[in-house]
């Protein structure tokens, strides 16, 4: 399926690069709909990869790349359920999203996240599966999960550890603070900074450049420098599920979902 237009995302091939656009309002919250469409995408990847050399993931939403997991769906889907049933549902979701993230991580393409604005939680984790992160000057990154009594669950910690020094990972994870693109470049997360509104254009230029090289060589280089930490990823699901069964999590989710004030995204 070379062209797809879904409710949460769309893709097409432009000049040898698959452009995967996230367009679910308000800020590409990742819930069951997005997961389903991402699974459709990863199922189509072998066919797409025959005609493309790169993948660009970007957002058409003004607020940013993605605000992360759909906490409203998570809260409403698990509220009032028996704990074991709620944890089972969360585990199933996590295993499916890990399947998507692992497929993107291992894709035989050069993958580029072109991010702007809010790149939080699961959105940050989606960017982290990509080979290259190109960020708009106004991009902002955050792992806010500890505020909810959780850890990142879409593969964030193992992939952050893969790319950054552990001291920085501890700061970002344990403070739950957001940080800007200058910091992101300084710590080695973002390799290119684009002017405001220019991340997709810069990503397209980068995709065009990587298309000049022999694909098998590019795949071999990628596999050599970007191992996938499968064991840690599995462990992350276990820790997340253990934490999710605690009453503090439901309370944290309730506070976030029911917050009608101006500050739910501030710590």
């Amino acid at each position: 399926m070379n062209v797809f237009k879904g409710q949460a995302l769309s893709w097409q091939i432009v000049n040898g690069a698959i452009e995967l656009a996230l367009h679910r309002e308000p800020c590409n919250e990742i819930g069951s709909l997005t997961l389903e469409e991402l699974e459709t995408f990863t199922a189509s990847l072998p066919e797409l990869a025959r005609e493309a050399h790169a993948l660009i993931i970007h957002s058409t939403q003004k607020a940013g790349f993605s605000a992360g997991a759909d906490l409203r769906e998570l809260y409403e889907g698990s509220r009032g359920m028996e704990k074991n049933d709620a944890v089972r549902g969360v585990r199933e979701f996590l295993e499916r999203i890990h399947g998507v993230m692992n497929a993107l991580d291992a894709a035989p393409l050069t993958t580029i996240a072109a991010v702007h604005g809010v790149t939080f939680g699961g959105g940050f984790e989606l960017a982290l599966v990509c080979d290259i992160i190109i960020a708009d000057r106004m991009a902002r990154f955050c792992f806010p999960e500890l505020r909810l009594g959780l850890i990142p669950g879409f593969g964030g910690i193992p992939r952050l550890k893969r790319d950054l020094g552990n001291a920085v990972v501890r700061d970002l994870l344990l403070t739950g603070r957001s940080f800007n693109v200058m910091k992101a470049q300084q710590i080695g997360l973002v390799s290119q900074i684009a002017a405001e509104g220019e991340a997709l254009r810069v990503a397209r230029a980068t995709a065009s450049q990587v298309g000049k090289f022999d694909r098998q060589t590019a795949i071999a280089a990628k596999q050599f420098v970007k191992p996938i930490p499968y064991e840690e990823l599995k462990r992350e699901i276990e820790i997340f599920c253990d934490l999710f069964s605690r009453p503090a999590v439901e309370e944290g989710l309730r506070k976030f979902v029911e917050n009608e004030g101006p500050a739910p995204y501030l710590p």
Partner: peptide, 20 residues
Amino acid sequence: SLQALDLLTRLEHHFRIELP
């Protein structure tokens, strides 16, 4: 709050600081 984060980012760039 999202726009407040946008303001924070602009202020960090303007003053060349990091403000958690």
